[in-house]
Design a protein around this nucleic acid. Structure first.
Lengths: 142, 142
DNA sequence: CTTGATGCAAAGTGTTTGCAACTTA
DNA sequence: TAAGTTGCAAACACTTTGCATCAAG
């Protein structure tokens, strides 16, 4: 069976005259089935598990496509490396990041979103995307 | 005359048994007088202007101290390099980042801050600092 | 004079790229 | 079979670190 994400990704590729290779399909599947936030290195690990020949370069190149197609979202929670998470079919949310144990907690808050829109209007700024991260100590670490 | 920032920074160093060297003083002054957001590389340039012998390594090492002492704040607006801005004696603010021209616009919004506090309370999370960035097109670019 | 700081260059880290061989549409 | 894709290794950009020398307290 062909999943919804795969359909969306393949249509994205087609529209740009790009090809759906076996490597891209493997990486897509691994990225979508991973839970939580993962790094490029981790995704390479997952993908190698399914196809030993997949290279780091292909993972990075595919990650860019998955981001552009809206399949994944990229986050920088500090610590040098970027993290990714499934975005397709999920509602927008923001994050708490525990600076002791590294735990990431998601939350949705429409009131904050609305105030951001108002602020943008005030500044005549056209927001494309945003990032709100609250760093501190989670309930187990504080 | 000894400025307020210098006093705070030297007390910070003293408390940790670190020394206030001429290089640290120079870098501090350049960082504090720079307006807007600047990179480590730019700060190295400013500092070299005042003292040709200052090295990249010392700038990076001092930047860490300026951050820890609350003199500067570090931001990652994407684009690979971190940017810094004076924090001492300034009120907290967030940023719009134009993804076309790179312009950074600051704003303060207490309502958003309050809602963040409420959300943190709900999650039993102790927030130490946060970052809100709205990416998109500024009024001249949209 | 003891301990920490500096400059230099080398080493790291995560990510990107050039290229010849190879798939996909 | 044309055009995009891959794996490999080298290249990159930014930042950090080891070490012998130097300076602050």
């Amino acid at each position: 069976m062909i999943s919804e994400v795969e359909k969306i990704f393949s249509e994205f590729l087609e529209k740009k005259d790009l090809k759906l290779t076996s490597q891209r399909r493997t990486i897509l599947h691994q990225a979508v089935k991973a839970r939580g936030h993962f790094s490029a290195e981790e995704l390479l690990g997952f993908s190698k598990g399914a196809d030993r020949t997949i290279s780091k370069a292909t993972v990075y190149r595919t990650l860019a496509l998955l981001k552009d197609s809206g399949t994944l979202e990229e986050h920088d929670f500090g610590g040098g490396k970027k993290l990714y998470e499934k975005a397709q079919g999920r509602r927008h949310h923001d994050h708490f990041v525990c600076i002791r144990c590294g735990k990431i907690i998601e939350f949705e808050n429409d009131q904050i979103e609305n105030l951001q829109d108002l602020e943008a209007k005030k500044q005549r700024f056209k927001v494309v995307y945003h990032s709100l991260k609250l760093f501190g100590f989670c309930s187990s670490c504080k």
